[in-house]
């Protein structure tokens, strides 16, 4: 693997926005001058079914078109998936896990048996407080920015503006930016 190739696997339930989050991350990384890929895994398309999405980010053109087998980062948007063996597949001590949960880092580790660094963020709670809706994506992107440094907040802010300004106005943009920053500030890591 080229040293600068960073691979992410997102776990969520269909309809929770893992695909949109992976796409927004890709667009922000593109604006930072990176090469990117974002692609979901397509199974039976039913709302609520477990689904995966992937990102690749690199300084060089990305040639790989296989699925991500050994991610550098695993992001779990729905903590009811933690018992699913897919969460730990292809991971080791060097992999990072970020989970949207109110549970502690220790209980997450216990639940899924993850060997690498484990981080938690109360993304749904933050989203409910800031946006009034249980859409944790922007909060999760803030946590990803803090833990990995692969994206910078200001580039995500630009993407939030692109996505929401025309449709929902400046107030919604500001709320999402606040949610993003709270994800960045409030993510807790251990190990």
């Amino acid at each position: 693997m080229p040293a600068n190739l960073f691979e992410i696997r997102w776990h969520g339930r269909a309809g929770q926005g893992a695909k949109s989050a992976s796409q927004m991350l890709a667009e922000a990384a593109l604006d930072m001058g990176k090469y990117v890929q974002a692609f979901p895994e397509y199974g039976a398309e039913r709302t609520g079914a477990p689904m995966k999405a992937f990102n690749r980010i690199s300084d060089e053109r990305i040639l790989l078109h296989s699925s991500v087998e050994n991610p550098d980062l695993v992001v779990v948007i729905d903590d009811t998936l933690l018992g699913n063996p897919d969460i730990v597949a292809g991971t080791d001590e060097k992999t990072i896990l970020i989970v949207n949960t109110v549970k502690t880092v220790e209980s997450v580790r216990q639940k899924c048996g993850f060997k690498g660094k484990v981080c938690t963020v109360k993304a749904t709670e933050i989203a409910l407080e800031e946006l009034g809706r249980a859409t944790p994506n922007t909060v999760m992107l803030g946590a990803v920015a803090k833990v990995t440094g692969i994206i910078e907040l200001k580039y995500v802010e630009d993407k939030i503006r692109d996505m929401f300004l025309k449709k929902f106005g400046e107030a919604v943009v500001q709320k999402n930016i606040k949610a993003l920053h709270r994800g960045y500030e409030e993510v807790i890591c251990n190990g």
Binding site: Q23, A26, Q37, F39, P40, Y42
Partner: peptide, 8 residues
């Protein structure tokens, strides 16, 4: 792989 994958 290509039709639905986001690339630069």
């Amino acid at each position: 792989i290509i039709s639905h994958g986001v690339e630069v």
